[in-house]
Design a protein around this nucleic acid. Sequence first.
DNA 1: AATCTGATGTCAGTGACTGTCAACACGTCA
DNA 2: TGACGTGTTGACAGTCACTGACATCAGATT
Lengths: 189, 189
Amino acid sequence: MGRWEPDSRGRLQEAALALFSERGFDQTTAAEIAARAGVTERTFFRHFADKREVLFGGSEVLRERIVTGVAGAPAGHAPLEAVADGLDAAAAMLGEARRDLTAQRQAVIAANPELRERELAKLAAYAAAVAATLRQRGVGELQATLAAEAGMSVLRAALERWANGHDDRSLPVIMADYLAELRAVTASS
Amino acid sequence: MGRWEPDSRGRLQEAALALFSERGFDQTTAAEIAARAGVTERTFFRHFADKREVLFGGSEVLRERIVTGVAGAPAGHAPLEAVADGLDAAAAMLGEARRDLTAQRQAVIAANPELRERELAKLAAYAAAVAATLRQRGVGELQATLAAEAGMSVLRAALERWANGHDDRSLPVIMADYLAELRAVTASS
DNA sequence: AATCTGATGTCAGTGACTGTCAACACGTCA
DNA sequence: TGACGTGTTGACAGTCACTGACATCAGATT
């Protein structure tokens, strides 16, 4: 064992989620999070680029999963079908997480404009990565962008419903349903 | 005339755009913007909630225009058709602005992650307002959200292309084209 | 044993943002 | 005409997010 307790990063994430839930994001300082995790404020900012990032630790892994799902779609799949495969991969990963923790995290994010802003940025990053993957599959730039962003809208709406417990269906089922709704509402009329 | 030069707010917006273009967002302090506008830093933060907001002064007007466009769509219009009417209203307003100024503003935003984040938040606010308007027209919550967010994707992509001068067509024409692309890529296959 | 490496602590500093109070030009009303 | 309310600004002190530079120390490497 090292000079300090291991997994500072994980302790910081737990401490932050707890404090944000108790007092709110604005009423919690980075120094308080660090103290609760048993480290200094400087260490907090070594692990996380800014105070919000502590809530988005798993976002890169999720992005990779989504991209892998899209890239692994059969060659014959249309753009939105490939995106659907990416959503399946995301749903599989998120479905493994404890729903109560996801709900707690979503509640903290929903309660603060700065955190909502950051969540949008993360979704935009997913969309950009998915669009780039679609382009490698031969999809045009514009269609790739539009399909990817619409897919992330589906992801967010489904995740919100699932995490809040308003729907007892599994996350992949909700996502598939929501994707069908997207197709319905964008159908020419 | 008052004790001070009028239109502090407008001078702050101009000064900020100029300084951000010259040095970049991070290398410009709020105090420098204020000095260039002939006011104090405190006055800057009386007019704008934070340093980024100075670049988004017209966003509320644009949101109202979009919402008015959606609300004014014929009763028979499908959700996405109503959104298209909102996009037309947005295009009409943005088309009035000088394209070079819009391009300059977009370049500043594109160069900075924090500003891109804020732009996403503004688009999300438009989408939420549009979705609420669609719901008043009897559209279901989910379809309203998905149609509105897809519409804002179209708005952003078209605005980017128009402002950069990569496309000589008028903004409304580009938007209509992009909306057709959205329909094509989400068509069941 | 000497050295290297990685994670952390310490400390000083910048800049975004806020609360509070005073100053002052302007309009209103007696 | 003059007292008074109102809206905008300046002045100033303060908190907190975030950064750069340097020291420290356990464990791995040689």
